[in-house]
Design a protein around this nucleic acid. Sequence first.
DNA 1: TTAATACTTAGAGTTAACTCGAGGTCAATG
DNA 2: CATTGACCTCGAGTTAACTCTAAGTATTAA
Lengths: 136, 136
Amino acid sequence: MKTYSISEVAKILNLTVYTLRYYDKEGLMPFIERTSSGIRMFKETDIDALRIIECLKSTGMPIKEIKNFIDWCSDGDSTLQQRYNMFIERKATVEAQMEELKKTLELIEHKCFYYETALEAGTEDIHKKNKIEITY
Amino acid sequence: MKTYSISEVAKILNLTVYTLRYYDKEGLMPFIERTSSGIRMFKETDIDALRIIECLKSTGMPIKEIKNFIDWCSDGDSTLQQRYNMFIERKATVEAQMEELKKTLELIEHKCFYYETALEAGTEDIHKKNKIEITY
DNA sequence: TTAATACTTAGAGTTAACTCGAGGTCAATG
DNA sequence: CATTGACCTCGAGTTAACTCTAAGTATTAA
């Protein structure tokens, strides 16, 4: 079974070796095996696990909470409910984030339009009722 | 014209007074007027400006870059192009973030399904070809 | 066999974004 | 006229997530 070095994994996942070692130090990678001389050997399944970690991270989950999940995984079937609950909760937060982003995008698109017309007019004043105000 | 105190604005925008003062310290609020005794008086337009700041922040823009934008606003029409470019760029990053989130959501939904079936079966083993592996 | 290269650890340093404490001012109320 | 509460500044402290340095080990290539 092929294994990967830390720098190979860093390249694959677009992370730095520092970050990977930091994750290991924080207990996010209890599954990584080592050579007799202590060098980490990453299996394909380890890389998949890291992808899940990255996925959770991208939902804004702090590393300490991700560690809880990793610990539950090591604990086996007795923690299935917790893990399920966690993903259901994550699903809700991501959906909320998408809603947030949608609103953000709308405001930004409005501003794009605002500046487009201001550029055409050569001045922002066309958007101001009262020309003394500055609109941010 | 009605004005608001810092604590009122904090309540409206769901921020702390500490955060608002921090933004001011960082130069994000050069437009806020003060009473003769130095107390900040927020106008409606100031609150709108803060909403834009929050919007930019929610796209992941660091405060120093938001400050650039605020400075451009104070500089007037000569910076219209920069500000337009900035919003176009923000639009692109938000769209990329939405794509990212979509993928994240798919993975999470997959995991919800994974744990749902595992819970029904009472064990995670049903998902494993090789029952010795742990799947994270 | 020696040089280069990639790995190891422990622990210190960095950065962003708050977050707060101390000490002070000011306006209103009993 | 003293007290209360909301405001002020300055600067220190906190936290998360890296990011890096130093000192050392292991593997390969000439």
